[in-house]
């Protein structure tokens, strides 16, 4: 039986994250899923962007491509198409995924590229001191919304669903067992999968908004959680302020590469000259 530690670089610890940060819970969940699935490290490529959670590759002993802010999904698209046998995992924060990289997310979902996006959403830019992002809730205080945030936030899962994602799920740092289950579901899913992991940022978002210690923030997350199945029976008003957790979308739609492979098979004129399939 593989252990999550087999996929970790322990000599890189202690990690960069602040005490009480939820990112470590997601990191451990990812490594634990690799172990559960007994994946060969050579079959995994993790692509990360910039931000607190963008540092997740520092601690994993697998293939890693650490790229620019917001561009992890397009870089991962290139990898997934050039070597469709790989499990391509993309780790992003709320800045990477739906703010600077929002356009890439909707197009990647629309194309149904076979990869797994794991997003740690802490409602703000932690690495640069707690500025607001595309998921910062209205009225929140951040270092760049000192008088209260006037913009409406993105619901990452609803955005992904609307863009055509074929597997969408949400977990909170309070419930790592569910987080692992959902990440595994995403990796096993053929096509574009997205798991939003709600994580606390006690250093910035929590402090600015007087939400207490990390444990208090996690308890609050749990209190607001509502299972996706139950949420379906509730009205919009009833769901106000709640965090819908579990599998939100899970459907089959042929992924980009499978469709493109049919074009290759139909158009191919000769065997020599190297193929992306032979790698």
């Amino acid at each position: 039986m593989a252990d999550y530690k087999d996929y970790m670089l322990f000599d890189k610890l202690p990690h960069t994250w602040c005490a009480g940060c939820g990112d470590g819970i997601v990191l451990q969940s990812i490594a634990a899923v690799f172990a559960e699935m007994e994946l060969d490290k050579h079959d995994i490529c993790l692509v990360s962007g910039i931000g607190c959670f963008g540092r997740v590759d520092d601690y994993l002993d697998i293939n890693c491509m650490h790229v620019t802010h917001g561009r992890a999904l397009p870089a991962a698209t290139g990898i997934a198409l050039a070597n469709p046998a790989l499990h391509v995992i993309v780790t992003m924060g709320d800045g990477d995924s739906v703010t600077i990289g929002g356009n890439h997310l909707i197009h990647c979902a629309r194309r149904n590229i076979d990869l797994t996006a794991i997003i740690a959403n802490n409602y703000n830019y932690g690495q640069t001191g707690g500025q607001y992002s595309g998921t910062t809730p209205t009225d929140s205080i951040t270092s760049t919304s000192p008088y209260g945030h006037i913009e409406q936030e993105f619901d990452i899962c609803r955005l992904a669903e609307a863009a055509g994602a074929t597997y969408v799920a949400r977990a909170t740092a309070f419930n790592p067992v569910q987080m692992r289950k959902l990440i595994r579901g995403g990796i096993e899913h053929k096509g574009f999968s997205l798991i939003e992991c709600m994580v606390q940022c006690p250093t910035h978002y929590g402090r600015y908004n007087r939400q207490g210690e990390a444990a208090d923030m996690m308890k609050m997350m749990n209190a607001r959680s509502i299972p996706a199945e139950k949420a379906k029976t509730m009205s919009a008003e009833e769901l106000e302020g709640r965090i819908v957790t579990g599998v939100i979308v899970n459907k089959n739609r042929e992924d980009y590469y499978t469709k493109y492979k049919r074009i290759i098979d139909a158009q191919r004129i000769r065997e020599e000259g190297g193929s992306v399939n032979e790698n």
């Binding site: 790229v67 290139g78 990898i79 050039a82 992306v276 790698n279």
Partner: peptide
Amino acid sequence: AALLGASLAGV
């Protein structure tokens, strides 16, 4: 970005 990803995968 996609170009670099594909190249890293050997193509």
